[in-house]
Simulated assay, not measured.
Amino acid sequence: MNKPLIITDCDEVLLRMVVHFRDWLGEEHGVDLDLTRGWAEGMRRRGADEPMKVADMWTLLDGFFDTQMGRQDPIPGAVEAMAALSDHAEIVVLTNLPHHRQNDRVRQLRGIGIDVPVYCNQGPKGPALQKIMVERGEGRPAVFIDDLAIHIGSVAEVAPHVSRLHFVGEPGVAPHTTCALEAGHAHARIDQWAEAVPWLMQRIGASE
């Protein structure tokens, strides 16, 4: 395929996740999640002064994806953005979920009208992105979109020629997220799809 390649994250880019995780923690587990803090630091059992142990955090996160993916709804404008961009680019999703959740994520995205290949990954996304580009064909413009600065930085290190958009679609989280643009790892920080689409069109050499 000769179209440019867009490799995008899912949670907080295409789908809202953290607010649903927060609500489920409170409803089912008596755990409060402060979205202004980091995950482990922001999670506390009600009545406890100490943050939750990291191992317990991961157990609860696994439990959410085991049973609650149906709660997730689209980031405003995401479905329309993917439809508009798909006329000009090949789109794939690179999500940090275990590989056994790949089919669940594919079905989840299809359910909201986003039917694209899904790659699962663990850890920094730079190496995974590089493998995707080799598999799907190099030598064409490529853009990476993610809500976490660590993954933007990983791609900047491994594939510096790839355009990088730092996008945090959840307004309760965006103001408290470390900005990859400030570190020089992102080419832009945009948190609204209405603003992101024109920027992405320009990066892939297309017009709306």
Score class of each variant (00 low, 15 high):
M52A: 01
W39M: 14
G42A: 08
A55Q: 12
H88L: 02
A89G: 08
T95L: 05
G42M: 10
A89K: 04
G70L: 05
Q68T: 04
K53T: 01
W39C: 02
T67K: 07
I75Y: 10
N96A: 14
R37F: 03
G38Y: 10
T36Q: 13
E80C: 01
H100F: 12
D62R: 05
W39D: 06
M52Q: 12
A89C: 07
P51Q: 06
G70R: 14
T59P: 00
L97E: 11
D66S: 11
G47M: 07
P98W: 11
P51C: 06
Q68D: 09
E90G: 04
V54K: 04
M57E: 06
A84K: 15
F65T: 13
R46C: 05
G70K: 10
L97T: 09
W58C: 00
V54T: 11
F65G: 02
A84C: 01
L35F: 11
L94Q: 09
E41N: 08
P76D: 00
A89S: 12
S86R: 13
F65W: 15
H99A: 14
V79N: 00
P98L: 08
K53W: 00
A78N: 04
D56A: 15
I91K: 08
D73I: 09
K53F: 01
A89T: 12
A40D: 13
L97W: 10
V93N: 02
Q72N: 14
Q72R: 10
I91L: 15
A84V: 12
E80K: 00
A89V: 06
E90Q: 15
M52V: 06
A83W: 00
M52T: 04
R37V: 01
D62M: 08
A81G: 05
V54I: 02
M57A: 14
D87Y: 05
F64M: 10
M57Y: 11
P76H: 06
V93A: 06
L35G: 08
V93K: 02
R45V: 07
A48W: 09
D73H: 08
G70A: 14
M57G: 13
R44S: 01
M43P: 07
E50M: 11
D73E: 15
F65Y: 15
D62I: 00
M52E: 01
P98E: 14
G77C: 02
D73K: 12
V79P: 00
